[in-house]
Computed example of a mutant assay.
Amino acid sequence: MRVSEAINSRRSMRVFTPEPVSKADVEWIVTNANRAASNGNLQPWKLHITMGKARQRLSAAILKAMDDGDSGPGAEYDVYPKEFTPVYDARRKLVGKQLYTLLNVPRGDAAGMLKQFRKNYDFFDAPVGMILCVERRMGNGQWIDCGIFLDQLMLLAREKGLHTCPQAAFSRYQHVVRRELKIPDDQVVICGLALGHADPDAVPNCLITERAPIQDFTTWHSE
């Protein structure tokens, strides 16, 4: 698979099949993703991989915390900007509308939206659930490095015929993730990543988000 094919076929999948993913394939993906660029070659990413019963326990623990009203301290970083300018707010609202329209969840259906949101914590039934962390002593540059590493994981998954879904939602329940996976206090939970075989016929997986034309964000300098 060409890199461009991996990029253009990658999208966030929200329904996975029960088909297992071998540990060997996961190791291959992670080993190759570890070639990701990082400033000063710090390689700051910390990855926690759950499969089988361990993944199920993590999901069950978070869903129980939700049911018990145990929201904990919340995320340790701002997932979104504190204020949205119109262009970014429009993009966020559009993708939400597109997704919930596909799911036949009308605007204002709080119960339907919550039901779909809870599926995040079951990794959308993917057999592999990853949690990406970084040491809190690291600077903003190392968060960029972790983003590069995350992207490599997703693209390499495509080479193996697999799909993924990056999930910032796990940062909300980082206190449960930390407890269940024994993540040290000196690590910040950045996000989760579902990995597995996507169901091509599932309605949510038909969503292909729009992208802005390059002239919207590119400035050329030639003289």
Rank of each mutant, 00 (worst) to 15 (best):
S12R: 02
P20T: 09
K23I: 12
A24V: 14
A24W: 04
I29S: 02
A33N: 01
S38R: 04
S38P: 05
G40N: 10
Q43T: 10
G52F: 04
K53G: 00
L58A: 11
L63A: 02
A65Y: 01
G74P: 11
G74Y: 05
A75E: 01
E76L: 12
V79K: 08
V87M: 14
A90Y: 13
R92T: 11
R92I: 12
R92N: 09
T101C: 03
T101S: 10
L103G: 08
L103I: 02
N104S: 10
P106G: 11
G108N: 04
D109A: 09
D109Q: 09
L114D: 07
Q116W: 12
R118E: 01
K119M: 07
D122R: 15
F123V: 12
A126C: 07
M130D: 08
V134C: 13
G139V: 15
N140S: 09
N140Q: 10
G141F: 04
Q142F: 01
I144W: 00
G147P: 09
L150S: 07
D151N: 10
Q152T: 10
M154I: 03
M154W: 04
L155M: 02
L156G: 08
E159N: 12
T164E: 00
A168S: 09
A169Q: 08
A169G: 07
E180T: 15
I183Y: 14
D186W: 10
D186K: 13
G192F: 01
L195S: 07
H197Q: 06
A202M: 00
C206L: 12
L207I: 04
Q215K: 15
D216L: 06
H221V: 14
S222M: 05
